[in-house]
Design a protein around this nucleic acid. Structure first.
Lengths: 129, 129
DNA sequence: CTTGACCTTCCAGTGTAGTGGAAGGTTGAG
DNA sequence: CTCAACCTTCCACTACACTGGAAGGTCAAG
């Protein structure tokens, strides 16, 4: 399987696959006599895993960690559970923070409704913010 | 007022103020005979405005737009209302997206609880993700 | 034999909001 | 006069996940 074919099958680009190899997410591929990368079908499963990790908002660095544990012959389950727990806590924190931001913005916008431009003071740039 | 003094008064650094000038957020400062930047007190109000904009999660590019409207002599109220409305919609979208992500991760983590590592298949990298 | 689609490497840039550091000039106190 | 603390410009770098493009090699069809 050549790189373009694999990229299409995985829904990504050849450029990205080379990048992943460079970043240690894909193992260095076998090469044909002429130097083309030659992938086995198992690489597609690996790319699917990477995509699932991204769907769970893991960073490429975190996904690489899991992959390296797997590549070393150990089952990465423990680590995956840990990462998912961490991500869950982070996402909860992000949601809470965005909720606070939403309140701030909503109040500012409410205050900015139905006010006349004449009340604007040049020194303050804008009284509504 | 020299740059370090202003930076301290505004709760930021001289480096950042030069960066802001470079980005068009601060007007080029007057200079002393020896080339030092010399700020008037009105710059502090401008920096406060920038900080309020950042607290509302406006980007520096958006804050610059408002500042340029103000600098052109027009009251930026209309534009500020528009930007705040946009930010509100964006934040709502982000919150919704994070909520969906939270569900995805929570389900994955729940499935990963109390399962034995033996069930892991090498080909799939990790069955829980 | 040529054409076009594919592949290779390597270097550079995207956007965000700064930060770090080098090399050199200025200011004010002792 | 010297010294520290300040200032100047300029260039590079951070994290993140790619993307663009140049220069050149390979493969299959016509």
């Amino acid at each position: 399987m050549r790189i373009g074919e694999l990229a299409q099958a995985a829904g990504t680009t050849a450029k990205t696959l080379r990048f992943y190899e460079d970043q240690g997410l894909l193992l260095p591929a076998a090469r044909t006599a002429s130097g083309y990368r030659d992938y086995g079908p198992e690489t597609l499963a690996r790319l699917d895993f990477i995509h699932r990790g991204q769907a769970a908002a893991l960073t490429l660095a975190q996904i690489r960690q899991i992959l390296q544990i797997r590549d070393s012959g150990t089952a990465p389950c423990e680590h995956v559970r840990e990462l998912l727990g961490m991500r869950l806590a982070e996402v909860d924190e992000q949601i809470a923070e965005l909720g606070r931001l939403r309140e701030t913005i909503a109040q500012l916008r409410a205050a900015a409704e139905d006010v006349e431009p004449e009340t604007c003071q040049a020194g303050a740039v804008c009284v509504y913010l």
